[in-house]
Amino acid sequence: MSIDPGTITVPDLWKGAHRDDRTRPRSRQRLLGPSSIGLCRRRAAYEVHGAWPTDLDDNMHAAILGTWLHEGILRVLAEQYGAHTELELTNGVILGHADVYWAPGGAAPGVVEDVKTKSTRALDVVVRQGPSQHEWFQVHLYAHLLRTGGLTDHPHLPTGKPLPVDAVRLRYVGREYGQVVVHQRMYDEDVTRQALAWAEDVLESAEPEAMPRDLDGPGLSIICDNCPFKTACWNIDEISDDRAPQSILAEDAVGVTDALRAYADAAEVESAAKKRKAKARKTLDAADPGTYGAFKLSWSGGNPRPPEPDPAAMIRVLEGLSLDIPMKPGGRSSRTIGVTRVPEAT
Rank of each mutant, 00 (worst) to 15 (best):
M1V: 05
M1P: 11
M1S: 12
T9N: 05
V10D: 12
V10I: 15
V10Y: 00
R19K: 10
R22S: 10
R24C: 01
R28G: 00
R30T: 14
R30K: 13
L31Y: 01
S35W: 02
G38N: 01
R42H: 06
A44E: 05
Y46K: 01
E47K: 06
W52M: 09
T54G: 15
D58L: 14
H61C: 05
H70K: 08
L74I: 02
L74E: 02
R75F: 00
V76C: 00
V76S: 00
T85N: 01
E88L: 09
L89W: 05
T90C: 09
N91T: 07
N91C: 13
N91Q: 09
L95T: 15
V100Y: 02
V100P: 02
Y101L: 01
G105S: 11
A108L: 14
P109N: 08
V112F: 01
P131Q: 06
E135V: 03
W136V: 09
Q138K: 08
L141V: 10
L145P: 11
G149L: 09
T152E: 13
L157M: 07
P158M: 04
T159A: 14
G160T: 12
G160Y: 02
K161A: 15
P162C: 02
P164F: 03
P164M: 04
V165W: 00
V168R: 01
V168T: 06
L170W: 06
R171C: 14
Y172S: 04
E176I: 00
V182E: 12
V182N: 04
Q184Y: 09
Y187E: 12
E189A: 15
E189I: 06
D190G: 09
Q194R: 15
E200S: 14
E204I: 06
E204M: 07
S205K: 03
A206P: 06
D214C: 13
D214I: 12
D214F: 10
D216V: 03
G217C: 10
P218E: 11
L220Y: 11
S221D: 15
D225W: 07
F229Q: 04
T231H: 03
C233G: 08
S240C: 05
S240R: 13
D241V: 04
P245K: 04
Q246R: 05
Q246W: 08
S247W: 11
G255F: 09
G255P: 13
G255V: 01
D258I: 05
R261A: 13
A262D: 15
A264L: 11
A266V: 07
A267Q: 15
A267F: 04
A272G: 08
A273C: 05
R276S: 08
A278G: 09
R281K: 14
T283K: 04
L284E: 09
D285T: 12
D285H: 07
A286P: 00
A287G: 00
T291R: 10
W299E: 08
W299S: 10
W299G: 01
S300W: 09
N303C: 03
N303Q: 11
P306W: 00
L321H: 06
L321Q: 13
G330R: 12
S333N: 14
S333L: 10
R335F: 09
G338C: 05
T340R: 11
R341C: 08
A345V: 13
